[in-house]
Amino acid sequence: MTMTTETTIGREAPPGARWIDVCAYDDLLPERGVCAIIDGVQVAVFRTFDGDLYAVSNLDPFCGAHVISRGILGTRAGAPTVASPMYKQVFDLRTGGCLDDPDVALPTFPIRRSATGDRVEVGLSDEHRE
């Protein structure tokens, strides 16, 4: 198994963020998501086919329900995506931006594998906690 401890630039934890352990890496199925709850914030966590990790808000802004983690993963023009299971809007997992409506974006969270490689951690800063 390859060990990647860092993640893509831009999803680094901002200063002041806390890294919170959410699950084992093996809890995640390739090409599927799960939901973690951290201080009342619902975070959708995904593992893509190549082993990369992404974390975005679980709240679907189009329907108001917390369902993003149950969407289908894929790619659109090379970008890793998740489609809302409710009304099927597609979001770029790297930026949270909605590819069907440029005015909409999901909040994203920093995510990484733990130093030992077997755990997954999400970075949460205070601003996420409203």
Partner: peptide, 15 residues
């Protein structure tokens, strides 16, 4: 796979 939260499997979704 039928869990509400991967880090709190027994907790119902508060929303």
């Amino acid at each position: 796979r039928f869990v509400s939260f991967v880090n709190a499997p027994g907790t119902p979704d508060p929303s």
